[in-house]
Design a protein around this nucleic acid. Structure first.
Lengths: 229, 229
DNA sequence: GCTAATTAGCGTACCTCATACGCCAAATTG
DNA sequence: CAATTTGGCGTATGAGGTACGCTAATTAGC
């Protein structure tokens, strides 16, 4: 929600010298919060609930995390610090395709993360390293740095936008295209209805659509990159 | 946050016959909430604040809106019910390009909307009509319906993802790439640093980047569509 | 070992916010 | 002018975030 201190993400971790040794740690808190969000949703991540899980008092958390908003930001950046979807491919297009699908998998595995990603925020070290790793790989397979950067951002933007209708549909709780179940709505928006028609569950076809769009984006990038050679 | 009733968005508005005439209306409430969110941010939209603006009691709002979550959904859908960025172009590519830029403008004008767009939700009538209008225009300029649908969704997905770094940068409060102000960070992520380098403010270059990516997406769609003729 | 300094854990109190409930007011229908 | 219906809203409740300050545990210096 509110503003989050830049130093929270990028600042040095002040080392502890003397004094009482910590039982909690920022890492443990963030990891547990992510576990709760994955299992029960982001709105179930309350300081109270989190403290119970960790077997500590509520206010103890504030020794390691400035507040709730900051915790959410840390949760998000911790995702990006994990393993990267980088294949052993030797063509930039394969690298980017694999990476785009990996981004999709990440946001489907952590549905709460998409909301965080699209909130007003600052890029953290995890995310920066994430992007940096892909740029490095693209560079290794011969794509010039300036082309790699725009290619990665384009694919990333598409993936972020395109994964949206898939989230929620998976759980079955909230279907993004629920209104199309009504025949009257299908009659009013016949073109939209076609999207969901093939596999009535709508979940399966969305994945196909994601790949289709991704391939179109890669086509567009390919045309541009080839014109530069 | 929570689940929102499907009927809230798509249900018929029950007409009032007798009884006390309403002083408030759902439309007024939603419009005022949007005004607050635009001016002060979504987190400042509280039932209390909203009621003060409307000169009514807090609980009066609940006669017209089931709750806060539902209000936010209605706010979002009301944006989509507004005027559409549809040009008088006679080529599908121009239509989609103009539309993509219009989507970008919309989310920059209403920064809070992006978070709502990417939350778990159901498509409402405003948004469905929005998509439907573009499909109709594309159809009118000769693009087959099935191609129009995937083209619109692809462009929409890209626009949604790509506008993200621009939000917040505009206000100057929270810069998405704030960490690149630090020379050490620029040294660590030189490729990323290049993105912001040209216009040090980073805002101007992001718009150029949006258009670049959009054109790549359109290129990819063009290749696919031409291969179908 | 003793004391001072330092840092962690956490109970209490407070504030904000959404909202269930119920009463009253204002209009229509007969 | 009742009876009915619908809207406005005050009060109370409960959840959630967090400022404050006390206590506990540990180390550094003596």
């Amino acid at each position: 929600m509110g503003k989050v201190d830049y130093n929270l993400l990028w600042g040095e971790a002040a080392r502890a010298g003397r004094g009482r040794p910590p039982g909690l740690s920022r890492e443990r808190i963030v990891a547990e919060a992510v576990a709760i969000a994955d299992a029960e949703g982001l709105q179930k991540v309350s300081m109270k609930h989190l403290a119970e899980r960790l077997g500590s008092g509520v206010m103890s958390l504030y020794r390691h995390v400035p507040g709730k908003d900051e915790l959410v930001v840390l949760m998000y950046d911790s995702l990006m610090a994990g393993p990267l979807p980088l294949p052993e491919a030797d063509h930039w297009r394969d690298v980017l395709r694999h990476w785009g699908l990996g981004v999709r998998d990440l946001f489907i595995a952590h549905p709460w993360a998409l909301t965080v990603a699209t909130s007003e925020r600052t890029m953290g070290p995890g995310e920066a390293g994430w992007v940096d790793a892909v740029l490095g790989r693209l560079s290794a397979v011969g794509l010039p740095a300036e082309l790699g950067l725009i290619a990665v951002l384009t694919v990333d933007c598409f993936a972020l936008g395109a994964v949206r209708p898939e989230i929620g549909s998976a759980g079955g709780d909230t279907d993004f295209f629920q209104f199309l179940a009504d025949p009257a709505a299908r009659a009013r928006f016949p073109d939209l209805a076609r999207l969901v028609a093939p596999g009535s569950a709508s979940g399966a076809s969305m994945e196909d659509y994601f790949e289709f769009g991704l391939d179109r984006v890669l086509d567009g990038l390919e045309r541009f990159i080839e014109s530069r050679h």
